[in-house]
Simulated assay, not measured.
Amino acid sequence: MKHGELIIRHTDSENVAEEVKYSDYLAALASPGADTAIQLFEEGDYEVHLDYAITDYDGWDSTTYYQTSFKFKIRNANCMVYIFDSKSGTELNNGDVTENGFRIDAAKSSYPKLQVKKEILNNTENGLVEDTRFNGVASDGETFTDEGIYTIKAFNRYDDKLEPAVKTIYVGSNNILTAYTKNLNSSKHYEISELNALVDKGYTITDDGDIIEPVVETTTADITTSSPEATSDAANSTTASVKKNESKSVLLIVGGGIGVVALGGIIATVLRKKKNDE
């Protein structure tokens, strides 16, 4: 063992063990340039043993063997689970839609408990119904391609107080289910019955799950407008009326003048006749 032998044994979830050994470890610790950092982050069970011996040369050789050891475990605390499109390999987030299906990736974590529930559209009840054939434990790397809404949960089996990681993925091309899935995380969550009611009211749901309001045709009060010819005729009629009134005024004035002249002539005749009589 020379100046100390460091042995690290790692056992994975399949109970497969492997060992890593560092010889002269104590001597390396005394050397400023030696790389003594050990970094192991894979999940599993670990055993660490440092074995060394000390020989005493006082009178006769006396060797004493020592061992320092400890154990620890590494687990995925947050139970992170990744979902990838089964064909394109694109990562799918919670509420995403794919027609190809998806693959579960537990990021090399074999300890979280994975549960998958599938729901399908129930036209008779205007909602979703659970497909009991797809409600159970799933495994890392498992692929799902059948149409339906899948809820994937990853539980931490070592800490019941931790909330499970949950992701919902829709596999298929139904626009109602697409809109339902895409709005799961929005401020307005639609039930299947609500989406069907919107369609009955004239709303349009696109293949991408977008909800488009119907176009409302607004009606305005009928406004009667005159044609240019009618407007022109009305203007001419008004002008003619004004001219006619003006003509009447002139005639009245002229008529008044004639009456004054006639009255003057009568007065003059009467005065002449009176003078002759005198």
Rank of each mutant, 00 (worst) to 15 (best):
L195I: 00
E147T: 13
S88G: 06
L162V: 13
S86Q: 07
Y25C: 04
D35K: 13
A107L: 08
S237Q: 14
V129N: 05
T11A: 06
K274W: 09
N76Q: 14
D45G: 01
I192A: 01
K274I: 06
G172W: 04
H10A: 03
E47D: 12
T231V: 11
K87I: 15
T11R: 07
L195D: 01
G257E: 04
S232I: 05
K244C: 04
E246I: 11
Y25T: 05
H10V: 12
N135Q: 11
D45W: 02
I211S: 00
V16C: 04
Y57T: 06
F72A: 07
L92D: 05
V171Q: 04
D146P: 00
N15I: 02
N94T: 10
T178V: 15
I169V: 15
N135F: 11
D35T: 09
A28I: 00
R75S: 02
K243N: 14
S232E: 14
V242E: 12
A235S: 12
I54A: 11
G59E: 08
H3N: 15
L40F: 12
N174G: 12
D85W: 03
E19P: 00
D210M: 08
A179W: 04
G209S: 03
D45T: 09
P32N: 10
K161V: 09
K274A: 12
A221K: 11
D208M: 06
T239C: 01
N196D: 07
T68V: 12
G89N: 05
V16W: 07
N174W: 03
K113E: 11
T90A: 14
Y111A: 05
G255E: 08
L6G: 00
L128F: 09
T224P: 15
G59I: 03
T124Y: 11
I54Q: 10
L198Q: 06
T181V: 09
I7N: 07
V48M: 08
S109N: 14
K274R: 14
T218R: 07
N122G: 09
I54M: 09
E213C: 01
L29I: 15
Q67K: 15
K201N: 13
D207C: 00
A165K: 10
E217A: 09
L271K: 10
K201C: 04
T220W: 04
G89A: 07
E99R: 07
A179S: 04
D35A: 11
A138P: 01
V254Q: 09
I205F: 01
L263T: 11
S31E: 14
S86V: 07
A197W: 03
L177H: 04
T204R: 10
E130H: 02
N93H: 10
L114E: 03
A262C: 13
Y158W: 06
L162H: 03
T68H: 09
I266V: 15
E213G: 05
A197P: 02
V16Y: 10
D61I: 12
L26G: 08
L252E: 13
G264W: 03
K161L: 08
E14T: 08
N122Y: 10
D140G: 04
N93S: 13
L121F: 12
T238K: 14
L92Y: 07
T224S: 09
D61T: 14
T11V: 15
N174Y: 02
K153F: 02
T224N: 09
D35C: 03
T220G: 03
T225L: 14
E246A: 15
A77C: 00
Q67H: 03
A262L: 15
G95H: 05
G4Y: 02
E42V: 05
